[in-house]
Design a protein around this nucleic acid. Structure first.
Lengths: 271, 271
DNA sequence: CGCCAACTTGATGGCTGTCAAGTCAGGTGG
DNA sequence: CCACCTGACTTGACAGCCATCAAGTTGGCG
């Protein structure tokens, strides 16, 4: 199979958001980037709760910045919860290790997501977060975050909503795993990714899978061969075009119909 | 199959906790009961954060009390998040409705659990909570809870931990659905129930399933026949004894081995 | 006593897992 | 620039687990 024509002519899609072009299919060259001033977490990152009155240099790092190479860990299971991590750029996997060496992927993080909330119950991380590409995070000391959260209603509410989102996400995922077949799970996954990208200003149609088939299969509770086969089947039906990690959705309604047939239908909120 | 002998001689098990006897197999007569003074949520229910200095009448209801009959709803999907609900007595199911009429069970609530956190992200409940037996809740107005949470560190932290627990729970469940076969899921489920009961002072060995097979099957992402068959198989192997809704675990290690074989092994913290 | 919902059990089929062989893509070194 | 190597992915054949369909059994309740 030859390279998709669209790859050569990848168009300057979309609106006046400069991030738009960043999601080129070749993720090694450029990757997701977010600055404090347009980061969905900026209320958390600012030392005060004021968000209307712009501080002098919002794009200056306020908290410790840390770079993590592809394959590295932001935190691991068993680590004490010292910080939460706002993902500024890159892409990450949220996974639990099993005793037998396998691991279960429970989610993915994109730029703007807050990582580490799984440690809040016990003060110790139950899962780990792994970088799927070179990434950069703002480390937010949890003690400080708590202090801020106590005094500043806006931050309190924001943190609470973020935790709420984590819960909602997990519930939506439980729904997939509990009541959907392979095709439905994968279709829902693709549509979800599309929404996530679109919500960040990227193309909803053409995007790059940043995770391996193995990650996807673990996330969806399937085997890698099933994921591969199902993607091929979608392509044969004209729903999508697959070129290794590059996915183009060519029939949104068709995909949606796959999800809807005999199951679900809840339109999970963005991200 | 005749009634289990143990039913006639159900022994006054366990320690000096008066709740111990309450979990008799016949759930219609007696049911789980918790009072503010021994409720795991008492920090939330108290008007102030003081928990050492005992208030005059801790067992007096501080918030609106509400009774919900078996089959009724505490809240439904789409409802505005006005309150969260501390389950004082009874048993509840946490489920999401699907468009086609089926629904997916995402969890169960026992006395002492806080229900309604699924509405925090959007301010609207995404799921519903259904009473599986006649139940009683403390309704805690969410606005008031937020106010308390802002001013009182203990409550802030407690609420945060409860949300953290919700996340951890969901992750553990994702693990089951994503990487375990039917036997493993069911064994893990039984052991989990056992731990929950034990943690509340009931027998870890002999207990009453308060939900139907259908609830269990939905929760575990299986079909009702599979649950039934698997329970029978466990019984044939001498791991448990089943008498309709009454379960006796006769071989903990055996059950644990079922879970551990080829999977998982994470010892989920008590509820 | 009879009805109905909940549950159990059996027979069968299909989806997905397993095993195996190949293809592709990226990276390295000559 | 090309050969080679390795990991990621695809595809096929087959098997097994679980879903489906169907028929019974049990237990609660009027």
């Amino acid at each position: 199979m030859k390279a998709l024509a669209v790859l050569e002519t990848f168009p300057p899609i979309a609106p006046a958001i400069e991030r738009t072009l960043v999601n080129a299919p070749d993720a090694r060259v450029v990757h997701l980037t977010t600055q404090c001033c347009n980061c969905s977490l900026r209320e958390l990152c600012l030392p005060c709760g004021v968000r209307e009155a712009a501080p002098p240099r919002m794009d200056e790092p306020v908290f410790t910045r840390r770079h993590v190479n592809k394959g590295g860990h932001f935190y691991r299971a068993g680590d004490k919860l010292t910080s939460v991590y706002a993902l500024r750029s890159g892409f990450a996997r949220h996974n639990m290790m099993l005793m037998d060496g396998r691991d279960q992927v429970i989610g993915f993080f994109m730029a703007g997501d807050l990582m580490g909330l799984d440690g809040i119950q016990t003060g110790q991380h139950a899962c780990e977060a792994t970088a799927l590409e070179d990434s950069e995070v703002c480390m937010i000391p949890f003690a400080r975050l708590e202090r801020m959260s106590l005094g500043i209603p806006a931050i309190h509410q924001h943190l609470q909503r973020l935790m709420g989102r984590e819960i909602t996400r997990a519930h939506g995922h439980l729904l997939s795993l509990g009541s959907m077949c392979a095709e439905q799970r994968l279709a829902k996954f693709l549509l979800h990714l599309s929404r996530c990208y679109a919500g960040r200003g990227y193309s909803a149609t053409l995007f790059n899978l940043r995770m391996t088939r193995e990650d996807i299969s673990s996330y969806l509770g399937l085997k890698i061969e099933t994921v591969s086969r199902t993607l091929s089947r979608f392509q044969k039906r004209g729903l999508i075009t697959v070129q290794s990690k590059v996915i183009e959705i060519t029939d949104f309604d068709g995909l949606q119909r796959v999800v809807g047939d005999s199951a679900s239908g809840e339109s999970a909120p963005l991200t």
